Computed example of a mutant assay.
Amino acid sequence: MGLFNKTIAVTGGRKGEEMRALIQKQGGKALIRPAQGTVFTNEEHVVQSLREIIENPPDMLIYTTGMGEKRMAELAELAGLEKEYNHLLRSIPIAVRGTKTLRHFKQKGITPQTVADRGTMNQLENALTIENQSVVLQMHGENVPGFIESLEAANNTVTTIYPYEHTPPEQAVLKQLIEEIENGQLDAVAFTSAIQVRYFFEYVDRVKKRERILTSLTETILPVAVGEVTEEHLKAQGIEHVLTPTTPRMGAMVMEMAKYYRNLASS
């Protein structure tokens, strides 16, 4: 019961009830405050992109999520492009971000050439030593201009595909979360994806409360990230110390919080 008497705000909505149950099991109280909106797919755009890369194959395919590739495969099948798309995957070098994406491809019988096993874009960038090539980059719902600029600086041509995109969160929810932070109603804020960090701080900047929120998340409220990618985004916003489990899973994040507070109580 490491979270006894602790109130945790969770910024992910998709698995909010699952997170609530995990936190309650550890004796805590979960407040679900989604900092991202719904996910949708611009199917016409993705199918057109698939046709283009099948007709003019790139030198490399880069995938940032297994879920994104799965959606591309589904749309290829619906558009009658399944055979051509599968041939493309098996004839071109593939780079992937994260062990989940790697497992996804191995289940398809494909071994990627380049793997960033920590799952960060920085690691993927460092692992790629390509230049003068055409690259297709499957994005994970948000842009990564630094990564793309790095590829383009090496004279690579980059085409992006967004199999799924996110709508912004409800501003009323973000306003409520900020008020709870300011009023000291929370012990921790748990971010379950990098895009939540971006949307949250965009709103914080819009209402001109960055300094106050950063102070709270540094001095009185524990910032928690589900994995290294989300942790990197929090640190990029100016939060130096972030609690992050070694395994990027929701359950592992809750157990890491419980462990943190047990250690704190016994010190």
Rank of each mutant, 00 (worst) to 15 (best):
G184P: 05
Q185N: 13
L186S: 02
L186V: 04
F191Q: 12
F191A: 12
T192R: 09
T192W: 00
A194K: 13
V197K: 13
F200P: 04
F201Y: 06
F201T: 11
E202C: 02
E202A: 14
Y203Q: 05
Y203T: 09
V204Q: 07
V207A: 10
K209C: 01
R210P: 09
E211W: 04
I213G: 08
I213C: 05
I213T: 06
L214W: 01
S216A: 15
S216T: 07
L217Q: 11
L217W: 03
L217E: 04
T218Q: 08
E219V: 14
I221H: 10
I221Q: 08
L222G: 04
L222F: 00
P223A: 06
P223C: 06
E228Q: 15
V229A: 13
T230Y: 05
E231C: 14
E231W: 07
E232H: 13
K235W: 00
Q237D: 02
Q237R: 15
G238C: 07
G238L: 08
G238P: 07
I239D: 02
E240D: 06
H241T: 14
L243F: 08
L243W: 05
T244F: 02
T246L: 13
P248Q: 05
P248D: 00
P248A: 04
P248M: 08
R249P: 03
M250Y: 05
G251K: 14
A252M: 06
A252L: 02
A252F: 01
M253D: 07
M255N: 15
E256A: 15
E256T: 15
E256Y: 11
